[in-house]
Structures are given as C-alpha cells and as structure tokens.
Design a protein around this nucleic acid. Sequence first.
DNA 1: CGTTGTTCGGCCTTAGGCGT
DNA 2: ACGCCTAAGGCCGAACAACG
Length: 239
Amino acid sequence: MDLAERLLALDEFYGQLQLLERAVGGKRILSECDGRMKWPRRGVYFFFEDGEFRDDGVTPRVVRVGTHALRPSKSTLWGRLSQHKGNVGGSMPGGGNHRGSIFRLHVGTALLTAGDWPEAVRLSWGFGNTAKGVVREGEYPVEVAVSQRVGSMPFLWVDVDDEPDYGSDRGVIESGAIALLSNAGRPAIDPPASSWLGQLANREAIRTSGLWNVEHVQSSPSVGFLDVFSRHVGAMAPE
DNA sequence: CGTTGTTCGGCCTTAGGCGT
DNA sequence: ACGCCTAAGGCCGAACAACG
C-alpha cells in the first residue's frame, strides 16, 4: 500500500468514524462514564486526545485503538474501559491500576518522564504483575495523574458482538485500524503534535507510530478491515 | 437482597534471545 | 531447525461493594 492508497484508506476510515459518532450520539469522555450507561456487550474503542488533529487541523486524530475478548472470556467492553478509567472510590479514589491496563502503563511512563516524581515510583512503575500495598501507595499520585489524563480523553466505540476469538471481527478491526493509523516505519500521515505526551513514552513503537499502541504498529496496512468495520458501523441503530 | 458495577492480583499469547 | 526461557503486551474474572 503506497502513500496515496493509505491516504485514501485513512479518509475512508475517518469517514466511518464520523458515521459511528452519529450512531452512538457523540463521543463520550471517559471520566464522565460509568457502567450504568448503555454499552454494547463487546466492541472496539477508539480514543482521541485534546490537541491532536489530523493534517487538516480540525479532525480529531485517533490516538489509541483497543478491544477485548480476543480469547474465550466473558469480559465486556465497559469492563475494559473501566480499567483504563481507573478507580472511582475505594481506598485510593481517583487512582487506578496500571498493571491491569496497558494504556495506563504507557501514559504513566510518559508522565514519569515529563515530571518530577519520587525515585521509588520510577523504580516500581510497571514492574511485575502485582505490587504490595505500600508500593501501590507510592504509585498513587501517578495513578491519579494518569486517571486525569486518560479520563479527559473522548472516545468512540463500535458494537461488535461476535464470539470471543483472536480471529473475531474485533480482532480484525483492532489490528487493521492500528496498522493503518500507525506511522511507524513509513511516511507520516496525520502525525502527532510535538507536544503530544506520547513523544515522551519510553517505547519507540509509541513515539514512531503516533499511537498509544505497541502491537500491530509495524504491520503492513491493508484495506481489508474497512469492509468489516463499515459493516458493523452500519449495523448500529442511530440514537 | 439480588443485580450491577468496581477493584486488583493474575493469566494468556507471542516474540525474541540463546543454547543445542 | 528446535526447544527452552523470559519479558512484554494486553486482557481476565473472582470477590467485593454499592445501589435500587
């Protein structure tokens, strides 16, 4: 896929996102969401971020694509989104668990690079699958900062409720969208602003792709997923 | 007081490195 | 080639909490 083809495909993709936005009644802001809202059981989500636009300067740029239930499970779309959102109450309100959300992990790592944080947090952040209470308390301020950052992001979601599987339409749409949007190893289209937080990520895949994604950013883009995507967008009843 | 939402320790898959 | 090991990426789900 050459530059012109990719540009066409991206325009098609963003056109579908516009239809999707209409179908779901507008983007939602993660911090304003909860599980009582109407969510499809399963789906794919697309995050945007303040100050990030396409080359036209007005169309919001996708900064992360994700999904869930790629292997047999009962996990739900909101269940996954809520992990990205973080905690509401509990012992550490406004915090979250970056060990349960790779999105939080990456954003937090960039924030650690950008800001002045205790050395202990730099050493523990992202280390291991679990952490003891005292460690998590030390990480709490960063989790709060991550919740604020991620919580302010608008997002869209598409209802894709086929069976959990790596070959599900969710998987096809997720990997296809990431491959198409990614600027890693190819001429940049819709590059991030120089002020984009992801520029401070420690993962090269994030900095070069312009996405808060690592997997699939090196995959060759193809238009195949657009049919699958548009089919599911078209199937969503208007609000 | 059952249903729905949240929390958080852990699990699964894949890629890459290295020895055989 | 093959198998083992490890780390990274990304998501799971049981138990707890809250709410109508």
